[in-house]
Every structure is written in structure tokens, then in C-alpha cells.
């Protein structure tokens, strides 16, 4: 499901990124188009077939509990999905989740990158360790966080709270969405750090020295030299992470099951509950299409906002 409704926005983004890496001349550009055609056509077919089927299903009354009763219902599925109060919660949660994780991973990533860029003992090993969370499967990561950190009885956080004489928090019940944000951010922080660190290391040494001679202190140097230099890398991080964060699922399934109520249900999870908990394929398909539209709105919005950073 996730792959299906995101492929549209992936294609949109990749087209944009390729376009941004401006080819030198019209000739090389048209040759490049020709060379890319097979893979683009394949990708397009890959996307359009499932998308077409989803649109078709979304127009049917199609429930797995009542096989053989499929019939055309027009936009009824959409009406039900969009007027479901859970939909607005899910929409809000999706945006909060994406925004929260982006904020934490970009700001945290910049700080981590600055830290890792300092010469220190065992730099190589520290860098590998920092990257490590990225290699852990989402389900495993979420389970580790749920049982070892956030558990109100045995969790590390509970122990810390008690250490300071505070009442341990039942994270997943009290602040379910925040907890999910923390878990997902933990997974994506290394990715952001890695990309931003590479950007940081490509900053010309003489430029830093020139700024130093021009009287820029560490903070001015960061604001006027380092940050603009990293703008492109930050854009790449934001765009790529957004694609994946719109479809966060495993972490929610494993930890909160979308609850309590709909407090940590995002659109992906809502589609899942429709399809596999209520066996309503038609409704789920309508939800999927809504998600595709949403993903594209977010993508267009992002590219309008920060896409110019990608241009050379």
C-alpha cells in the first residue's frame, strides 16, 4: 500500500531532481532523455497499473466479508472516507508526524554533523555507531523503544524518572504521537546526520578562513557560511525523508496500534484499518487515493518552498 501511493510522488520528485541537475546543452539533454526513456517508461507502468486498479476498486462497493456483491457505487467510498472523523485526526497526525520528525532529524542532524566534524579520538568508529540506527528494521526499533525505553515499569525512562523521584510516564498511553515521533526521529537522525556531515566536509577550508579573517565569529560563520553551504543537503534530506515519513506504518502498528482512539493514527494506518480490520477494500482504496493526492500536495508544496535550493 505504502509503495503504491507513494510511487506517484517519488516519480514527481525524481523528475524534478533530474531536471535540476541541468544538462549542459540541448543535445546532451535530448540524448539523456532517450537513454532514460526505458527506465522511466517501466517506472511509469509500475506505477500506473496498481494506481489504475486502486482507482477502480475505490469506485466499487467491495467488502471481503460479502464476496460476490461488488457493485459500482460512484464516489460513495470517498464520501465515507473523507467524512469519517478519524480522517481528520489521521490527516492532522500525519502532518504532525512528518513535521515533528523532520524538525528533530534536521536540527539534530546539523548538530550531530557539526559535532562529528570535530577532530576527535576514534572518529571512524563513532561515525559508524552514529549511522547504526538506520540499519535497524522499523519493527525491531519500535519494539526496542516500546519495551526497553518507554515501558512504564521496566523502561529506562521510567527508571530515570524514579531516580529523580518523579512518577514514571506511560509514554505510549499519555503521549502516543510524541512517542512515535521520537522513535521515528531516532531512526532518521542518522540519515540526516550522514548527508549533512558529507555536506559539511565539502565546505572549502579557505572559505572558512576567509570568513575568519573577515571577522566572523563561530556563530556568524555558521549562519552566513556553513548553513547556506548545507542548504542543498538539507533540502535533499527534507524531500527524501518526507517521502518515507508520509508512509510510516510499522512503528505505529507495533507500539500504539493507532490508539488510544485515533490519537496516533496516520493516513497509512487508517487505510490499513479500513482494509484489513474492516475488510472494506473499496473504502481502503479510496483512502489510498486520498493519500496519493495528499502526498502530491505535500510534494508540490515542498518543492515550491525549498526546491530552488536544488538548482545549481
Amino acid at each position: 500500500m505504502a509503495v503504491r501511493f507513494l510511487s506517484a510522488s517519488v516519480l514527481y520528485l525524481s523528475e524534478y531532481i533530474l531536471g535540476a541537475a541541468k544538462m549542459a546543452t540541448i543535445h546532451t539533454r535530448s540524448v539523456a532523455r532517450l537513454m532514460m526513456a526505458p527506465s522511466v517508461i517501466l517506472l511509469f507502468a509500475w506505477m500506473i497499473v496498481p494506481l489504475g486498479m486502486t482507482i477502480y476498486f475505490s469506485l466499487l462497493r467491495y467488502n471481503l466479508l460479502m464476496p460476490g456483491t461488488e457493485e459500482f457505487t460512484g464516489l460513495l467510498n470517498y464520501e465515507f472516507f473523507l467524512t469519517d472523523p478519524a480522517f481528520f485526526d489521521a490527516l492532522k497526525n500525519t502532518l504532525l508526524l512528518v513535521g515533528g520528525v523532520l524538525a528533530i532529524s534536521v536540527i539534530g542532524g546539523i548538530l550531530m554533523a557539526l559535532l562529528l566534524d570535530q577532530p576527535m579520538f576514534g572518529q571512524g568508529i563513532v561515525r559508524i555507531l552514529v549511522i547504526a540506527p538506520f540499519f535497524i528494521m522499523p519493527t525491531v526499533a519500535a519494539l526496542v523503544w516500546k519495551n526497553m525505553f518507554m515501558n512504564p515499569v521496566n523502561g529506562l525512562f521510567a527508571w530515570l524518572f524514579r531516580l529523580f523521584g518523579a512518577q514514571p510516564l506511560d509514554w505510549l498511553a499519555v503521549a502516543p504521537l510524541t512517542s512515535v515521533v521520537i522513535i521515528v526521529a531516532w531512526q532518521w537522525l542518522p540519515f540526516a546526520t550522514l548527508i549533512l556531515l558529507t555536506a559539511l566536509q565539502s565546505l572549502d577550508e579557505e572559505q572558512k578562513e576567509a570568513a575568519e579573517m573577515d571577522g566572523a565569529g563561530p556563530i556568524s560563520k555558521f549562519i552566513y557560511i556553513t548553513l547556506p553551504h548545507m542548504a542543498r543537503a538539507i533540502t535533499v534530506v527534507v524531500l527524501i525523508e518526507t517521502i518515507f515519513l508520509l508512509s510510516v506504518f510499522a512503528e505505529i502498528l507495533v507500539t500504539t496500534n493507532g490508539g488510544p482512539g485515533t490519537q496516533s493514527t496516520n493516513i497509512t494506518y487508517l487505510v490499513y484499518t479500513q482494509a484489513l480490520l474492516q475488510f472494506d477494500v473499496g473504502g481502503a482504496s479510496a483512502g489510498g487515493i486520498v493519500a496519493v493526492v495528499l502526498a502530491n500536495i505535500v510534494a508540490i508544496f515542498l518543492i515550491r518552498m525549498i526546491g530552488k535550493n536544488l538548482e545549481a
Partner: peptide
Amino acid sequence: PAKRGLAMVFQSYALYPH
């Protein structure tokens, strides 16, 4: 460096590209 009142022109120019 900033307090010495000297200005430097680098071989690579070291202009701020953005």
C-alpha cells in the same frame, strides 16, 4: 586573525558562493 587588522586574498579567491 580578525583582530590583527590584516586582509587576505586567497589563491582560490575563497568567495562566498551563495
